[in-house]
Amino acid sequence: MNSLLTVRLAYGQLLTYCGWFAGAATFAMMTIVVANVVARYAFNSSVPGAMELTEGALPLIIFLSLALTQFHGGHIRVSMLTDRLPRTLSQALLVLALLAGAVLFGWAAWAGWLSAEKSLAIGEMKRGSIRYPVWPIKFAVSFGMALLTVQFLIDALCVAVGMPLQDADPEEVE
C-alpha cells in the first residue's frame, strides 16, 4: 500500500512537470498576445504568427494539464448520493467510476494517436503568417490523454485497496 502511494506521488511529480510546461505556454501566450496589441498601436505592425502560435499552444496547455487536474481531484463529481451509501458500496462505485474514466480516455488516447499518425504521414502543416507542423501537437494531445488514463487506473487501484484520495480542493474548481 505504501509503495502504491509512492508510485502515485512519483507519477504526480511527472504530471507537475507537464503542468509547468503548460503553465509556461500559458504565460507565453499572454505575452505574445499583449506584444501583438502593443505592436499594433505603437508600431503599426503585428507580431508574425501571434494567432497561429496561440492556436497551437492551447491544445498543449489543456492536454498536458488534464491528468494533473485528476491527480489533485479537481474534475467535478457529485457525491451527495454516494456519501449516504455503505462504505464498501460507495467505494466499489468509485472504483467503477474511475475505471470508466480510464476506458473513455484510453479509447480517446488511442483514437488521438491514430489521428496524429495520419497527420505525420501527410506532413500536415499549420499555414498562416508562420508555418509549423501540426503533428507534434496531435501527439501531445494523445499523450496527455494517455497520462490521464494512467492516472485514472492508479486512482482506481488506490481506492480499491482502501487508500483515501485527497479531496477536491475548492480553490481548484471553476
Binding site: 503548460a22 503553465g23 496547455i61 489543456i62 494539464s65 488534464l66 487536474t69 479537481g74 481548484e172
Partner: peptide, 18 residues
C-alpha cells in the same frame, strides 16, 4: 507565478474537459 500558472492550467483543463 508558478503556483498561479498551475492553478490556471488546472482550472482550464477542468473546463475544457467538461
Amino acid at each position: 507565478i508558478n503556483a498561479t500558472l498551475l492553478e490556471t492550467i488546472r482550472t482550464s483543463a477542468m473546463i475544457f474537459g467538461i
